[in-house]
Design a protein around this nucleic acid. Sequence first.
DNA 1: TAGATTGTTAATCGATTAACAATC
DNA 2: TAGATTGTTAATCGATTAACAATC
Lengths: 229, 229
Amino acid sequence: MKAEKISEAVVRRLPVYLRHLTELHKREVMTVSSQELGQKLDLNPAQIRKDLAYFGDFGRKGIGYDVSYLIEKIRHILKLDRQINVALIGAGNLGHALSNYNMYLKESMKIVAVFDSYQPKIGTHINMLTVQPIDELKETVAEKNIRVGIITVPDSEAQRVADQLVESGVEAILNFAPTVLKVPSQVRIHAADFTTDLLSLAYYLDNGNGNGKEAEVHDNDKQPEKVDH
Amino acid sequence: MKAEKISEAVVRRLPVYLRHLTELHKREVMTVSSQELGQKLDLNPAQIRKDLAYFGDFGRKGIGYDVSYLIEKIRHILKLDRQINVALIGAGNLGHALSNYNMYLKESMKIVAVFDSYQPKIGTHINMLTVQPIDELKETVAEKNIRVGIITVPDSEAQRVADQLVESGVEAILNFAPTVLKVPSQVRIHAADFTTDLLSLAYYLDNGNGNGKEAEVHDNDKQPEKVDH
DNA sequence: TAGATTGTTAATCGATTAACAATC
DNA sequence: TAGATTGTTAATCGATTAACAATC
């Protein structure tokens, strides 16, 4: 089907499909059904078919999806069929880690510049790139046609860096700092804050820890109605 | 309200609330309304009230929420009012980055052991911790009462590590590898894969890149109905 | 042809938002 | 009291899943 607005949930599943399809391709699997895909990815097959059908009729009834063809299509949909230049702001451990993953994503989404505000970091190298001072950001963004920024600076600097990225004309931002950033609505921003994931995980742990002490369930320990808070 | 099952979406917002509340607390703000919170966090105030109301009557009509009190409550709900021991598997850059964030989260959710399978890494130090060989995992998990595992190994090793974590008796896993892992249903697993975030971000970029080339919109370029794929 | 699997519509389920009485 | 803001119910919106005709 065509001309509907695609939900964020759908878009977020596309890279997941792409990844597994690439894996299948490597293994020289030619064809895959929504059934099989769903099994592997823990998703409902109907959902997978529906997701893909938003963008075109990519499958063959009775057969399934051609792996190479679908890869090509999803890469096109995600605009990964051309290189997208990315700036990384924050040359700490996390920045390092990301610039490694870079290789992995070959071509598309390529980190082409790294910035930091910490003097001693400037001029050092990360994966072939020289760390630049942050005040060169705007200039470099223009020069290198950078369209995406990744923020890996500390919390306290994140909003300032976001402002600078926006000012530099970047179209999208991936934010690793654990703060909600304010950017104009035409700039797309995704939170990639893993502290949220980690902390929310704790909720699902059992109470007590097996040592015999047990099972105080929070839902039941309602506070005395009127403590002085 | 009580005794409903809380949706994942709700649980994932709790750490976000907690973080901002902690910030407010630092700034010695005593009280906050769902209105103000919503503004800061880009969330609907009604949603915030509803989220919190699942767990108790934490607010005061006409007044709002007492910051310290709400912090205490959310920490309790998330089980962050006691220390939760965490194992980190994978001592690469990402692992390093995470072990730094550790400090930040003070007390609760503490990384108490680091593992790697790469021989030369073993015995080196990360933030006071000695990197251990992965075959010591089970033993150490038991010894140190580790309840959560964080996977930061390469894709290809992730499932194996997950299996080992499960076998060791860990209750929850945060997975940074870009793969869907299979674990028994009693083990909670969260995907913290930022490649998904990054790639999905590309979808929202404008077509063309301002150089005059323009606006091929994917929805409209439907393939010729029957290419040989 | 028989079996498999898509694309799509309809049904279901769940989450967000609006609205408002209760009350500080 | 008047103004503010909660907790909660009802309305809305959106996303997932089931079901099935079309068709390879």
